[in-house]
Design a binder for these strands. Structure first.
Lengths: 180, 180
DNA sequence: TTATTATGAATGAACG
DNA sequence: CGTTCATTCATAATAA
């Protein structure tokens, strides 16, 4: 199992990390980055809409489904509690991809985030939402998430690494964070 | 096959086999011995308490953390199952697997085991349990696991290999196994 | 040394 | 939501 194929690196951007048969979702560095940021920003249990939204944007970095986002948050939240301690290893920081194409560009103005759910009435649950086509959703459908004085955390200035190759294709990703 | 191999001779005791800078936990022969015994005794998925307990005792043989125990069982269970592929014992096969390990035997004097969880109310999960100091747990804290006759498996008489050198320092390890 | 194996650690996916 | 399973990744140990 020593598989040295690990070396198989992504061609241009860190797409599929594992060259093996991807039976399951394999998040790219960018995707993880965004998800982590969202999580650190306070997002714990994204609504169906938020999941759809996030998934849509992350699809720019690679194949991804809504359920992946759903699971990601579920797992991350559940495990955070069990993982409060030190994280082994000296060099285990991040990005094991080997490709450092993280054009550190700051998007202060445009912070990435989740769109408020503002769940409209009744809708199918989770990702099983009939899978209507592939993207019918809009980026900013919400018109009034209402005020809410609940948790309004502001985003932390974070960088956004984008593939320098498809700069034109991937959306700017400047979403607004507005927790329900 | 490895399992026992690297364990080397139990003739004495293999101190911290870890050659040096252990990036990751490297179990000693004794630790593996105990874990293996517990596993073969039927323990598959130790509870948080059991993990803590086991970890505490195994620490006598070397550095170890609760999460190591947790992972060990996870891996061991998963792998044994996976390795059961294409292995049809023609004849008298011990067929030790399965869940029938009900050797309801007497907990003879020195049986190694895990202490019942007796999960009292709410407790942190897994090995993340606050890491309260270094063992506040008692060997037989339970006074009444209360009703619930879930799975009460008894231990199979097994010997306990102990380092003859540190007999005094390491706990006798005569615990009782009582699944919940 | 390099190649392979054994296994610790991590996490996606799901179960109950 | 907590817990468990299945795969995969990473690396110490060991064979070649």
């Amino acid at each position: 199992m020593g598989e040295g194929e690990r070396a198989a690196e992504s061609g241009g951007f860190s797409a599929t990390r594992a060259g093996a048969k991807c039976g399951r979702w394999n998040p790219t560095a960018e995707q993880v980055k965004v998800l982590t940021d969202l999580f650190r920003s306070g997002l714990r249990t994204p609504s169906t809409d938020q999941i759809q939204m996030i998934s849509a944007h992350l699809s720019a970095f690679g194949k991804i489904e809504s359920k992946n986002v759903f699971y990601w948050f579920q797992n991350h939240k559940a495990r955070e509690r069990h993982h409060k301690k030190r994280r082994r290893g000296p060099r285990d920081e991040e990005d094991d991809d080997g490709d450092h194409q993280k054009a550190r560009s700051r998007c202060l103005a445009s912070e990435l985030c989740a769109i408020a759910g503002c769940t409209k009435g009744k809708q199918d649950l989770f990702w099983q939402r009939q899978e209507r086509e592939t993207e019918t959703l809009e980026l900013f459908p919400l018109k009034s998430c209402s005020s809410d004085e609940e948790k309004v955390m502001s985003m932390r200035s974070e960088l956004w690494g984008r593939p320098f190759l498809d700069a034109a294709r991937d959306p700017p990703l400047d979403l607004r964070l507005s927790f329900i």
